[in-house]
């Protein structure tokens, strides 16, 4: 039962243009495996938001997806500045995004709430000055 497909990605923190590459690849894989479009959409959104956060807040990081027959586990790990107050960061509308980042359309403070909404389980571990790890689980619907 430990059979799973494991996908790993380097998420480039310098390149805003290629942001979304990891979630795009996972989405394609799930589609090919015949996972329902609703589940694929939930995974793609939750992972995209996490991936973008690593790019805009943490200079990039690493994304690992483990696909099981009935769910996916996603781990997004960075060595950025960390999050001092996770419950504050989780609040809709809270954002520390700079003007520059806002001009690209990020910074509504909706990314973490979206990740929560579109996943079945979400855990954030973060240490200021060391980095952040977000774990997401999405169960596939029947």
């Amino acid at each position: 039962m430990n059979e799973c497909i494991r996908l790993e990605y380097d998420v480039d923190g310098e390149n805003f243009a290629s942001a979304g590459h990891a979630s795009e690849s996972v989405k394609r894989t799930l589609k090919q495996m015949g996972v329902s479009s609703l589940s694929v959409r939930r995974v793609a959104i939750a992972m995209y938001e996490g991936e973008i956060n690593m790019v805009i807040h943490a200079h990039g990081g690493r994304a690992v997806a483990e696909i099981y027959p009935d769910h996916i586990d996603i781990r997004l790990e960075d060595h950025g500045p960390g999050i001092a107050d996770i419950s504050l960061a989780m609040q809709a509308g809270y954002s520390t995004a700079t003007e520059n980042i806002r001009s690209l359309g990020f910074g509504a403070g909706m990314g973490l709430p979206n990740m929560k909404k579109y996943s079945d389980d979400m855990q954030i571990e973060s240490t200021v000055g060391e980095g952040t790890t977000v774990k997401l689980r999405v169960d596939f619907e029947e």
Binding site: I45, Y48, E49, G105, F106, M110, G111, P113, N114, K117
Partner: peptide, 19 residues
């Protein structure tokens, strides 16, 4: 704001933006 759109836009919409 991209995350707002992700959370609120409806399927098969015309998405109007200046981004």
């Amino acid at each position: 704001f991209l995350s707002n759109i992700i959370s609120r836009a409806t399927d098969s919409c015309a998405w109007l933006t200046v981004m």
